[in-house]
Structure formats: structure tokens, C-alpha cells
Amino acid sequence: MDRRNFLRAAILAGAAFTVKRSGAMTVLSQNMNAAPAASGAGRFDMVAVMGGEPAAMFRKAITEMGGMGLYVKKGQKVCIKPNIGWDKAPDMAANTNPLLVAEIVRQCLAAGASEVTVFDHTCDDWRKCYANSGIEDAAKKAGAKVVPADQESYYRSVTIPKGKVLKTTKIHEAILNADVWINVPILKNHGGAKMSISMKNLMGIVWDRGFFHKNDLQQCIADISSLDRRPALNVVDAYRMMKTNGPRGRSEADVVSSKALFLSHDMVAVDTAATNFFNQVREMPLSDVGHLARAEALGIGTMKLDKLKIRRVKI
């Protein structure tokens, strides 16, 4: 019985509301509801697009992959998790591109999603981040619900069975309540983790980020990525990337216009590819980005890109 059928039955029983909000239910459904793409539902393992505007690159990539319908089914609740960590304008490349977020929202709704929520556990004041990143406005206009993430009560405890250091953590209910979620990081250099791409973006779904920094950051990033409820899709925004002083950035000098986008269900693969891409601008050995190898060791994905079916498109 999948979650939807279960819910339907529950609604019939007149208890939909309580069930939806019960933590026990979520833990149950978490395993029943392994994201469809975890098995690699797309036509390719990864699609990489270069040379277009954010929305156009995404449209191209998702079409190549086989369409949004592969990931989002009619009536499903979708959660989109961009990086909205900083009170910065889009051209500073600290947050995911709002145009990309809006396009993904539209595509999800077009594929029949019943609801699309967008959130991030920000570092700066969340209201300023949401507003000044342009994401709140763009996502709302595209039809999404933008929800806050600044209070602990929005989060619920989840166990991470595969985690080595991080064994249990609190995750935002928007992720837990969704049927599918899509991870939309921006490609950035990072002072502590070296790179901030799709796995590092998962730090924005947890409440206690301090635990990560305190207890071997690289391992914790790999651990959180081993979560059962993994993103169906990772869309790496490299329309602009932050080459230095990440993840916050100081000035325009940290930003490179790189006009690329990578799409994959495999977080390790897409982060490896994105790091290689980053290497063209600034040296960043894969081995320095500790969470890549550790995530591979946990069986989350692969760093061996040559074993993968990758579609590269320039537009």
C-alpha cells in the first residue's frame, strides 16, 4: 500500500488530519515511500546543460531526462528545497537562482502536483533571505507555498539508519509531509566543507546545523545524504557560481557567470561532476571535498562518472 492509498483510506475513515500530522505515520511512510528516482528512473543517470538561461536549461534537461512526469505524479505533494541561506541578491550567487526555482515549481504543477512547498533553514534572518533572494516572490508567483523554517517546532525527529555520526536529527516537516522532494542547490565554494552543492544543501533541511560543525562536518554531510527520504531529483544551479569566499561571498569578485545546470538523482555523482566543472575556474581536488568519498562509501551514489550514462547538451 503506498502512501496515497493509505491516505485515501484514512480520509475515508475521517482521520486524515490527525494521520497527516502524526510523527509515527511519517516514520512508517518514510520507508514505504522510497523516492521513485532512487532507482534511477530517468533516461540518463545525469543530464548536463550549458549555455542557456536558468529556466531554459532546466526545461532542456528535464526533457532529456524523460520529463517531470517521471518524478512527480498526479496529486502528489512536492517539496522544493533551494539554497536560500543568505540575505543576498541573486547576482551574488549565494542563493539558488529564483528563475530556476520558479520554473521547477511550474513544471511540478504542470505534472499534476497537488501542492508545491518551498523552504530553507536560512543562516541570515529568514525573512530577509526569502525576500532578497527573490525566491519567495518567484516561487509564490509560480504557484508554490513558501513556508518558514526558523523555529524548531517545524521539525520532527527522524533516524538516519546508515549514518555513522549523525544517527538521528530533526528534519523539516515540509520534506516529511511531501511525497516527493527536489533538491535545488547552487554551486559554491565553501570555507569549511570545501564545496557546497547538493549534499551540503541538505543541511538546510535539518534543525541542528551546529551538530554538523561540531561532529565532523564532512561525515555529517555524507550521513544526512544517506537519509531514507532522499531527493527524487537534484538540480544543481551553476548559472552563476561562487568561486571564492563561499558560502556567503563578499563581492562580485567571488562570482563567475558559468551558465550551466546539472540534473541527476545521484547526489554523489552530480556533486562530483559539479566539482569537476568548478575545477575549470579554481583548483579543488575531489579528495579535499571529503563528503564525496564518504558518501560514496555509504552507498549513496558514485564518484565514477565514466560508469554513468551522462547526457551533455550545449544550447
Binding site: H190, G192, H213, N215, D216, R250
Partner: peptide, 22 residues
């Protein structure tokens, strides 16, 4: 933590707007 545990951290520099801590 980088000194005591020899693991990555950098949360401070992450938050620093001027990179006074880098």
C-alpha cells in the same frame, strides 16, 4: 573544533560578511 577534533568546521567564516574570519 578544527584544532581540537581535526575535523572540518568553518561555520564562523561561513557567516562572516567581510571575511574578517576566513
Amino acid at each position: 573544533i578544527v584544532y581540537t577534533d581535526e575535523t572540518s568546521c568553518g561555520a564562523c567564516s561561513e557567516h562572516c560578511p567581510t571575511q574578517a574570519v576566513h
